[in-house]
Structure formats: structure tokens, C-alpha cells
Design a protein around this nucleic acid. Structure first.
Lengths: 337, 337
DNA sequence: CTGAAAGCGCTAACAA
DNA sequence: TTGTTAGCGCTTTCAG
């Protein structure tokens, strides 16, 4: 392999000078710079970021922790994050956290000396996140927060988004509403549920505990739960799914069993992933400004890398109801009602 | 930050010994090993992979180049690749190549000194891939190949898969068939088209050049093209989409315009992403054994890292037709027929 | 079984 | 404007 020494020798300058050219240090004569540049070009030399990292203790690598890359929410997030990281000259190290305990993949990222970590699916009680925050290691929580940990975070306004969903369903006359929950130990699931309940409570409506189901933000779980719900003697007239993937699962399950949406049952989601707007689904949902959230997450991290001592920032983005075609007015007469 | 020296001092051993413990070197007394381990544990010391990389010139980082992470095909691939990389103690550096020229993101990966690169969406004429291969840098082409470059590669059997699609459509009586092409400079698009044409030719059927449309493997392009195709005075009775995302776009476009699938028009895809099996779509398509292909890609790379001189391997996986519900028998009388 | 010393390829004072 | 020198935190001979 070819090193900066080789370039230096060939150019007849010191290795330091080569390093300076590489880093656009102004104190290099134009002529020298040109000469060195030419040689670098022609030789196909690539500076060794590892060596650089060792001395600067900066790698320009950012760990991005993702639980479930197959959930369409995440690719959209990843795309936006990766793009914005690039703007800051940062690269993304993908940490597939599916099934792994937090500290395992975190350890790897730390060994790799990433400059920071973006958690996209932190659990509410994550000790790893807490510890990192306490150690003052640069992290940002994208789309989630962790109880009692004051670090940079970016979230949608889950409470008011869910409340909007509740208001809308109430307005359509629904009273018997099921909720497919997300992962139990996530801020998103907790806040969305809280917002939804609060919205219903405003009109004196309660959620029947029997209609509160674990969906874990997963398609399959939702599919199964929906089938069960629709088989109930007193089936719900509407299902609020705490994310879109589950809503899509509900839609498919309902159709599969011959239920018509929204005639027989209304379905509403959360996130507004791209799929949801497809004609086939026309999912009514609560939109999160994903791209802006991703961008902000990266910006916060970049800011922290530049100013390690800066106070932690919590940024919240508004969620808005997007009405499409999976919710309808409740029918007066219901089978088994 | 805490280094192996700190550990050594505290344990009253040389730094070398600490290094040996870290690397499970057998020539360390059990007692010493235990003592060092304990201190490492309690201190929260994390070995610096950067420093290690500098001396070993191995980073355990693998670059994975992805064009379009939002295309559901890729998250599925990424999930499988990331999982398998983990099995080999390797980490994935995500290279979002969307819009970027090959050499740009490749350069970054190279600077980062990744041990190898997996290209998931190489173009047929990629000079970067060619150069890397010539330099004998460890790469593997997953799902694609590059003309005239002999490097490790993993592909589905696109030709015979597409031929199966052709046979099936012929069998259903279709003769006027449109094809939505993938990216023009990809082996997948070329091979699938070739296989399809060959299949039709076997029965003396030709593809009307006017029904051959650029879809670039993208949802939106496909959506638009489908609308145009269905508006034609002599619209096709079937559309073969060179990937599932386009097929889904076609499905949505058709439904949107009031066409019924498969009654008015048949649609067939390629890949069999998870979405495609959802009730809402029930897409008839050609399945690629994605997980196996991903696993093999990683295995090939790992093998090459272990045996740099090994001959290049090309592995092909069979593709099979998956019949669901988007293709039907052609109707005798066609509007404008 | 353990340690001393050299060095991976770079950056960053410090001199000149 | 340029060069010299000293590390960054590890692994790896080579000696004990």
C-alpha cells in the first residue's frame, strides 16, 4: 500500500507537507501544493483514515442503531439520516440491533470509535443510553426519548397526534375503539396511547381494556390481533394502530376476513410512511415530518461534536392528521352490537 | 479515555500482557488473565479498534453500497447481510449511493479502510468495480454482475425466472404484453428482459417496442408509465415489471384509473418482496431467494478476506414463479383490440 | 509465561 | 513556507 511518505519522497518534500496538502492547510506554497496534488492523483493514493483517527481521535463515523430495518419507517429514516450525515462529512455505521441487547452492539460501535451514536429505537429504560449520556458520549435519540435522561433528542408530537386521531374517530361516531399498541417500553407507544386516551376521555369515552392489544409495532402481530378483534362478539368499530405498519397489517387482515374498510371497520395509523398513501391503502394516519426529524437529529449530533459541552436539546415536531379513506362514519346498527 | 496501559499499570503487568488477554492469546497464566480481565471489566475499558486497525490493517468493517434503501428489496437484503456479517464479526458501513458517482462513495469507504465492499446495485459498466477488482481489493457483487469483471458475485437466475414469467403469461393467452424495464445499465434488467423475450419468442411472440418502457426500478416511474400504457388505443393485456416495486406501482396506477387487476390487465413482478404477498396485492411474481443470496454474499467476502488469492466465484440461485392473483386469462374481446 | 521495543500512517506542536 | 519530532493505542517480533 502507498502512504503519505511515498508521496513525500516522490515530491521531494517532507511527509508533513503532504499531510498539509491533504488537509488544505493554507501554509503551503501554491507550487508545492500543485506538485503534491498531481502526484497524489496519479498514484491513486488514499489517505488512511484509521491512522488519522488514531491521532485526531475523530473517525467521522456515526453509529446508527436500528431495530427493524424492514419496517418501512426505518428505511425512510435511514435515507434521510444518511443523506444529512453526508452533508456533515460523516459516515453511517449500521448497527442492526434486532434481538441484540443494547450494550452488545453499543460496545462494538464504541470499539470502532464512532464519533457519536444515533438511536432510532431506544427503549424507555435503556441503561446503555443512560450510561452513555452520563459519560457525556455524544448521542441523540431520534424519534424516541428515554425517561430521566437529558440528552439531545428529536421526537414527533405523539400526544397531540394521537389526540387528533381520537377526536377524528369520535367525530365519526366511533365509541368502541381498539388500540394496537407498539412496543411496550417505548416513549412513542406510551405517548400515543396517552394522547389517544386523553382525547377519548375529553368526550367521556373509555377504552375497553379488552380492546387494548399488543402489536409491538409489527405487521404480523397486528395481523393476528386484528383477526381476533374482528372475531369478537362485540367487535370494535375502529382500530387505532400506533404505527402504519400495524395499520397496514390490520387492513390486510380485515380484507382477508371479508371485512370492508371503512364500511365494516375503520383503521387509522401513525407515521404516514410512503406506502400508506398508495391507492391500495389510502390509509388515514397521523403524519410525522420524518425528513425534518432525521435532518435535525444529525444536526444536533454534529453540533454536539463541535461543542461537546453544549446543553442538551429536545426538539419536538408537530404531527398532523392526514385524512384518507380508511375511516368512515360508524353505522347505526352493528352486528352483535 | 482509558487505554490498555492504564489496565496494565493497575494490574502490575506489561501492556503486552493486556493485549494478549484481549486477544485470547493462550500464553498467559490463568491467574494473570483473570486479574487483567477483572480490571478491564470494572474499569469499563473498551479496546481501541482504530489503533488495532492501524497495526493489523484490518478494521472488520465492510462497506455495503446501496442505491435505494427505500425500495423494499434493499431493507430485506440489508437485514440479511447485516445479520450474516455479524456472524463473521464484521460490521456494516452503509454507503448511500443514491445519486452519487461510484468513485465518490467508494473513495470514502476506502479511506475508512473497510476490509471489503459489497455492491448491491452495481452498474454493468462500473469502472470503479472494475478497478477494485483489478487491484484485487475484496469485493462482492450481490444481486448484480459487471461485464467482463471476474470477481465474487451472487445472482438470481434472472434469465430463467423471466422466462417462467413469459411462459405463464403465454399460457394465460396473453400476446400483447408490456414490459417495465429496470435501470438500463444493470445486469438484472438486461437478463430479465432477455429471458422474457426468449420465453415469448419460443412461441413466436414478439414484444412491441412501443410497449417497452423505462421504469428504472422505481415506483413513480412505473406508476406513470402504467397510466400511459393503459391509455393506449391498443393497451397491453399484461404488464411484466422487472421488479416488485414497479409491479406495485402498476397495480396502484391501474386501480386508480379504474382498471381491474387481473380482469382488465394482468401484472407480474420480480423479486417477491414481503409486501407482495400481502392480501391487498397478492402479486404474482418471480421469487429470488434473497436471504440465501445475502448470506452467500457475506460468506464469499469472508472467505476472500481469509484467502485473498482464492479464485473468484460466481454463484447463481434459482428463481421460481410464485403464482398469486394478479394475472388472469386474457379476455377474448378487448376494448380497442 | 512475560516484557521491551519497534512501528502501523498519520497529525500537531515546535523550530527553523 | 517548510521540516523535525513526538506521539495516538495498539500488535508483534524478539529476548528473557
Amino acid at each position: 500500500v502507498i502512504t503519505s511518505w511515498d508521496i513525500a519522497n516522490e515530491a521531494g518534500v517532507s511527509q508533513t507537507t503532504v499531510s498539509r496538502v491533504l488537509n488544505d492547510d493554507p501554509r503551503v506554497a501554491e507550487a508545492t501544493r500543485e506538485r503534491v496534488r498531481a502526484i497524489i492523483e496519479r498514484s491513486g493514493y488514499t489517505p488512511n483514515a484509521i491512522a488519522r483517527g488514531l491521532v485526531t481521535s475523530r473517525t467521522n463515523l456515526v453509529g446508527v442503531a436500528i431495530t427493524d430495518i424492514v419496517n418501512p419507517f426505518y428505511p425512510e429514516l435511514v435515507e434521510a439520516i444518511a443523506g444529512q450525515l453526508g452533508e456533515h462529512g460523516l459516515r453511517m455505521v449500521f448497527a442492526n440491533t434486532a434481538g441484540q441487547p443494547d450494550d452488545l452492539y453499543t460496545r462494538v460501535l464504541l470499539e470502532q470509535r464512532v464519533d457519536g451514536i444515533i438511536f432510532t429505537s431506544a427503549l424507555l429504560d435503556s441503561p446503555t443510553v443512560r450510561e452513555l449520556a452520563e459519560r457525556n458520549f455524544p448521542i441523540v435519540l431520534a424519534n424516541r426519548y428515554v425517561d430521566g435522561v437529558a440528552c439531545d433528542s428529536v421526537t414527533g408530537d405523539n400526544v397531540s397526534g394521537a389526540r387528533a386521531a381520537a377526536d377524528y374517530l369520535l367525530e365519526l361516531g366511533h365509541r368502541r375503539i381498539a388500540v394496537l399498541l407498539g412496543h411496550p417500553r417505548t416513549s412513542t407507544s406510551r405517548d400515543r396511547l396517552a394522547g389517544f386516551k386523553a382525547g377519548l376521555a375529553g368526550s367521556g369515552v373509555q377504552v375497553d381494556p379488552g380492546l387494548l392489544r399488543e402489536g409491538r409495532y409489527a405487521y404480523e402481530a397486528s395481523y393476528k390481533q386484528t383477526n381476533e378483534l374482528l372475531d369478537l362478539p362485540r367487535a370494535p368499530t375502529a382500530i387505532f394502530c400506533l404505527n402504519d405498519v400495524m395499520a397496514l397489517g390490520a387492513l390486510n387482515a380485515a380484507r382477508r376476513s371479508g371485512f370492508r374498510v371503512p364500511d365494516d371497520v375503520s383503521v387509522i395509523g401513525f407515521d404516514d410512511v410512503r406506502l400508506s398513501s398508495w391507492e391500495t391503502f389510502g390509509l388515514t394516519t397521523v403524519r410525522q415530518p420524518l425528513a425534518a426529524m432525521a435532518r435535525t437529529s444529525v444536526d444536533l449530533l454534529a453540533h454536539r461534536l463541535a461543542f461537546p459541552g453544549a446543553p442538551a436539546q429536545q426538539r419536538t415536531f408537530p404531527s398532523v392528521l392526514v385524512v384518507r379513506s380508511t375511516c368512515g362514519r360508524v353505522k347505526e346498527v352493528r352486528r352483535g352490537g
